[in-house]
Nucleic acid binder design. Structure first.
Lengths: 176, 176
DNA sequence: TCAGCTATATGATTTCTATCATGTTGCAGT
DNA sequence: ACTGCAACATGATAGAAATCATATAGCTGA
């Protein structure tokens, strides 16, 4: 980490990698927050176990995504991080990460930018999910993202919180 | 703005206030981004006009909330900001705000913290809205927030994206 | 090439919630 | 004490989507 520090994830250059097997936890709820994590490969899910036993999946982190950014400012984790596939996770002590952010304004700004964009994206997502009918949700999604590639429609169904049959029915209706 | 600069919104200390009448716009989609805004009083809605004419409400900003943080890094706005009540908005040139963030690491970190917490909150909100039944959404909400005060249930209904009658029915079911 | 998986597609039935309707309660302001 | 409003509450009905079922197309690896 000699000189280039323009993006916040550059802070992880050279950071040690921890390998996590599918199904294993990176951290668990109530664990003390000591490190900051960046997913290098694989996918890791943030899950919050509910009182009824069924876990709520809060987030799916893929390669180059941070894990639980908000935990940077918390004492303990409020959710579990569980690998959905074998994964490689870069980790740095929290204090190290925070110190770098303090020292490199460009890195701080890039983190602000990343988070601000995510807030924006999520706001749109929330409003789409508040809509009642499949047709309205699809309209809104298409307005924001445009036509998806072939083979991607099923992912759209997931994103707009609708069953695949319901989406295909709506698409069929629009063709006729 | 002599010395204290621990929180990002301290940057707005002494910034000029713009009064916006109910129904008026602070900015419109496609406008060039030149300023950063902080709502001092009243409420301002971020709306994205959809192709079908019905606007999607992306966010409601109240006192002490920033408007469209993500626009800090964009050339033009991607949504409208419309006052829902008479409102007072503090504004600063974008370059001024960014320069302060660069100069004051504490301010940068507080902005990162604010955004990270919002991301976390929104993730939970999204997962609640993905649940199909009122009962599940209510369970999840209660698990995250705990029992609301009397007089607050109606807000819960709104937050979990459910009609008030549906919520009260579910509550009645649980009492029996 | 064939098997297997995933996306696409559509019909029938069931389940849920929105909506409409209506009524009660409790508080704030006059 | 009265008025008005908002929250709380519940019944009836209609509409929408989940679910279950089933089928075809297209790609991928053995």
């Amino acid at each position: 980490m000699i000189s280039i520090m323009l993006q916040w994830f550059d802070i992880f250059d050279g950071a040690p990698i921890r390998k996590v097997a599918k199904g294993a936890a990176v951290f668990r709820q109530e664990d003390r927050v000591q490190s900051m994590f960046l997913v290098r490969s694989g996918t890791v899910a943030l899950e919050r176990p509910m009182t009824d036993g069924i876990p709520l999946t809060l987030h799916i982190a893929n390669a180059d995504m941070a894990l639980a950014e908000a935990s940077l400012f918390a004492d303990t984790y409020h959710c579990d991080a569980v690998a959905r596939t074998d994964a490689e996770i870069a980790s740095l002590p929290r204090a190290t990460f925070l110190a770098k952010i303090r020292d490199y304004p460009d890195a701080a700004l890039s983190l602000i930018e990343t988070l601000a964009k995510e807030v924006q994206t999520q706001r749109a997502q929330i409003e789409i999910l508040r809509l009642r009918r499949v047709a309205d949700r699809l309209d809104a999604w298409l307005d924001l993202h445009g036509e998806p590639a072939k083979g991607e429609w099923i992912n759209v169904a997931d994103q707009i919180g609708v069953s695949a049959p319901a989406l295909y029915r709506e698409l069929a209706k629009r063709r006729n």
